[in-house]
Amino acid sequence: MTSNDSLPPVLVTGAAGFIGAYVCRALRARGEAVIGLDNFNDYYDPQLKRDRLAALCPDVEVRALDLCDREGLAALFDAHRPVRVVHLAAQAGVRYSLENPHAYVDSNLVGFVNLLELCRHRGVEHLAYASSSSVYGDSATPPFSEDQRIDKPRSLYAATKAANELMGYTYAQLYGLRATGLRFFTVYGPWGRPDMAPLLFSRAVLAGRPIDVFNHGRMRRDFTHIDDIVAGVLAALDRPPPGGVDGVPPHRVFNLGNHTPVELERFIAVIEAAAGRQAQKVYKPMQPGDMVETMADTGRAREALDFEPRTAIDDGLPPVVAWCRDYFGEAA
Rank of each mutant, 00 (worst) to 15 (best):
G36V: 05
N39H: 07
N41T: 05
Y44I: 02
Y44E: 00
Y44Q: 04
Y44V: 03
Y44A: 00
L48Q: 12
K49G: 04
R52T: 10
R52E: 04
L53C: 02
L53V: 13
P58G: 02
P58V: 08
E61M: 11
V62M: 07
V62T: 06
L65Y: 07
L67G: 01
L67Y: 03
D69Q: 06
E71Q: 10
G72L: 04
G72W: 11
L73E: 13
A74K: 14
A75E: 15
A75V: 07
D78I: 10
P82L: 11
V83E: 11
V85D: 01
V85E: 08
V86Y: 02
V86I: 15
L88V: 15
L88Y: 04
A92G: 02
A92C: 06
R95I: 15
R95G: 00
R95M: 14
Y96M: 14
Y96N: 07
S97W: 12
L98A: 12
L98R: 14
N100Q: 12
H102M: 13
Y104N: 01
Y104Q: 02
Y104S: 00
Y104R: 07
V105M: 11
S107Y: 04
S107A: 14
N108P: 12
F112N: 11
L116R: 02
L116M: 13
L116A: 05
E117Y: 11
L118R: 13
C119S: 04
R120W: 03
H121R: 14
R122E: 08
G123H: 06
V124E: 02
V124F: 00
H126M: 08
H126T: 12
L127E: 04
L127Q: 05
L127I: 12
A128Q: 00
A128V: 15
A128W: 10
Y129Q: 12
A130I: 13
S131L: 03
S132K: 03
S134T: 10
V135C: 01
V135L: 03
Y136F: 15
D138K: 05
D138W: 03
S139W: 07
S139C: 05
T141W: 04
P142A: 08
